[in-house]
Design a protein around this nucleic acid. Structure first.
Length: 105
DNA sequence: AACCTGACTCGCC
DNA sequence: AGGCGAGCCAGGT
């Protein structure tokens, strides 16, 4: 699926120490309406070693409960290890949201 | 082929 | 401010 390829490519471009929201990834992939598809795409996650799905959070900077790929908090630990500070279970999007060079749609 | 569900987001009440 | 419902696309039953 080309759509998925785009999504994975975008997620793969997320720099270390930064995070991106599902909607943002969707927008970068082509359409922000793909927010749900992005979640699904990461759900199948064909390449966990190549795709840093832990850098993808909700627009509120809160990690998905259904992540469960090691215990929810696991994602937070990984992000903190990269330099992302979590406050009360959520990341400061103002400061750590990935600033995309090519904003579209 | 139709219906339901889902790691989302936005708008209204 | 918090809760509820609708809209979006793709995949599974």
């Amino acid at each position: 699926m080309n759509s998925y390829e785009r999504i994975y490519e975008v997620v793969r471009r997320i720099p270390e120490g930064y995070v991106a929201s599902y909607g943002q990834v969707a927008a970068l992939a082509g359409n922000r309406r793909w927010s749900r598809v992005v979640g699904y795409a990461l759900h199948v996650n064909p390449d966990p070693g190549t795709i840093p799905c832990h850098r993808v959070v909700t627009k509120d900077g809160n990690v998905s409960e259904a992540f469960a790929f090691g215990g929810g908090n696991r994602q937070i630990e990984l992000l903190e290890a990269e330099g992302v500070t979590f406050t009360d279970g959520h990341v400061d999007m103002q400061r750590y949201q990935w600033q995309t060079p090519w904003i579209e749609e």
